[in-house]
Design a protein around this nucleic acid. Structure first.
Lengths: 168, 168
DNA sequence: ATTAATATTTAACAAGGTTAAATATATTGT
DNA sequence: ACAATATATTTAACCTTGTTAAATATTAAT
């Protein structure tokens, strides 16, 4: 608990404590999820692109780059890899022949769905050990957080631009 | 919601729904946190090693490898980078001259603390928008999850071995 | 005292990140 | 219409981080 005693009311300190707790728990949860992903045989980057294509539908290379927060060349290469494994299909756009639309194949789709199932399964495995009434508490908390997230979805999203620390 | 209708009681389905919700929220939370990390100017890998050294104290190269779930050569190189920036110090062990103990420097420590503060700050920024009473719900949920996590800490931990998908 | 085991580093390679440059197609201005 | 410009993608060259295999140094064991 090395959270600094920022100036503010007691309530604000409780906010920090809770933020801290949620942070730890999120790390724990996603560690399990990522571990489950390894069974897919795909790298996290490829699996992520595949997931985006699953929930967002076919997308151009630049759209994928934007969504993943990486450069277009990075996506181009990842798509090449996925294509070679038959998990996505590239197709020149008819409206604008500069664009390339990337679509997930059925093979890719089932791979993503299996991976997602494993992720959720791993988390659910932990929840089974909950005591009576505790599941309800989690659901309430999830609803609260989902509302927070939903609200900011309304605001225009900042363009993320990942930056690697190159030559020090 | 492509969660399969696994055989089981209604309660089990609720478990899956909650797992699903928690999963989404964890992703959202950590995305923010990672974004904040970029301000540190360190790569995620280096920052992670630095964090481990902060909370676990000085460690040998192999211990770090085990904790990070990567190979010893990978850690060795990362430590070299951190050392060059003056964030850690290498020191041959006196008990066993084969081992190298890695310790964080003051510079490294303040860098990690600043990064951690930023992470928590980003999460807290969202929580400020909570309605009265909602913070309490989150705290209860956090306590429940922390107990689950704490319990399994008791069991011996499996050795993680990260595996990159090499030649496809 | 050899021999075997352990800890770290170095070497050689793959994946994925970057920016810059090459290519192809659209769009715009005169 | 056509030359100039802008946009979308890919290729090229380089960096970081992952891997495994081999080199080195030190400890443990027969």
């Amino acid at each position: 608990m090395s959270i600094p005693p920022l100036p503010g009311a007691l309530e604000k300190i409780a906010v920090y404590e809770t933020a801290n707790a949620l942070h730890s728990l999120a790390i724990h949860l996603l560690r399990r999820a990522r571990a489950a992903d390894r069974e897919s045989g795909l790298s996290p980057e490829r699996l992520s692109v595949l997931s985006v294509l699953t929930f967002a539908g076919p997308r151009t290379v630049s759209a994928l780059a934007e969504l993943e927060g990486v450069s277009a060349p990075a996506i181009s290469r990842i798509v090449s890899g996925l294509e070679k494994e038959g998990l996505v299909k590239r197709e020149r756009s008819t409206q604008d022949a500069r664009q390339v639309r990337v679509a997930i194949t059925n093979k890719g789709k089932s791979l993503v769905e299996a991976a997602r199932r494993r992720r959720i399964e791993r988390i659910a495995e932990e929840l089974i050990r909950l005591r009576p009434g505790e599941l309800g508490k989690l659901r309430e908390a999830a609803r609260v957080l989902a509302r927070l997230e939903g609200e900011e979805k309304g605001a225009p999203r900042r363009l993320r631009q990942r930056k690697r620390n190159a030559g020090t």
